[in-house]
Design a protein around this nucleic acid. Structure first.
Lengths: 160, 160
DNA sequence: GTTTCTGCAAAGCCTTTGCAGGCGG
DNA sequence: CCGCCTGCAAAGGCTTTGCAGAAAC
């Protein structure tokens, strides 16, 4: 088939690395897989299977949801992407490296998503590894709670 | 209806507190709800809706899965239980207090679940609160990774 | 040329919802 | 008694799977 369009506003380097890793592992570089990766690199993180589906379908209307799921399963199996289980369905993210890596804080009040630099988890990771013998894999991590703004609002409410 | 049997090998005190909280919030203390709470208190932590269903059905065969889900939704809404989203379905846990509180580590290899004492997260919690202004709610927390046994096995494999 | 991969369709989970009757307060 | 709650059944989402044809290597 012909690739109609592949746009990439995001993490181009990482995207290429992953294509390379796929090929090396003996998997075929089909246009569908390339487009899924483009969509994931473009929309930074936290995409649902359906969002990826819709994104790719704009360039290639015959694209199928089953292909999204099969590609995502493959990426997760090769540790090139991670699945984030959430109520209402899983979300997927390419594994990030170095300065691009980050965790998330989700506000239970306003549902806002905030980034947390990775170093915050280093101490915990090491301590668990050292004292418990369990090796944490926390390439991606989500903390639920209250953001600063909503916390302030709650406090005002409590006073009145 | 008649309650056939309510056994409770677990956290009786907490269980009673929750019944009280339900009543105070204006909800009816039906035998079904009591039995769901018993099952949750007995099987300690991370039960699936289906496991609760099967447990209660042993005492009361007419029991329905929909009732489990409705009860669980209610408990979560009142912050008496928490939902833990996992691949293959959510798991539920009564909110634990004091020394009963604990977090979980899930091994990606053998799928084993291990407990992590709560103090491990205190430092992270405080640091995020102090430096970022975000108030983490981590009554339940799950870390994915490799348990000690599986890690050892992986290392042997790498050497050979 | 093979073998893998895709698109299509159908099925499989987990979870929610509508409704009539039953039970708790 | 009133209104909430249950059991039953059916529907709703997300995800997986079987299969024949198409595409990658």
């Amino acid at each position: 088939m012909q690739i109609v369009a592949i746009t990439n506003g995001g993490n181009l380097v990482r995207h290429g690395e992953i294509l390379e890793a796929l090929r090396k592992a003996g998997y075929r570089l089909t246009p569908q897989r390339v487009m899924v990766l483009s969509a994931m690199a473009k929309g930074k993180g936290h995409l649902s299977a359906d969002e990826i589906y819709e994104e790719v379908r704009q360039a290639y209307p015959f694209f199928d949801l089953a292909t999204v799921y099969r590609t995502l399963q493959l990426l997760v199996k090769l540790h090139l992407a991670t699945a984030i289980e959430e109520a209402g369905g899983a979300r997927f993210e390419l594994v990030q490296e170095g300065s691009n890596q980050h965790h998330h804080m989700v506000c239970e009040e306003c549902n806002g998503v905030f980034d947390l630099p990775p170093h915050y988890l280093n101490a915990l990771k090491e301590q668990v590894m050292r004292e418990v013998g369990f090796e944490p894999h926390m390439e991606h991590f989500t903390i639920h709670g209250l953001c600063a703004d909503c916390r302030e609002r709650e406090e005002k409410k409590a006073v009145s």
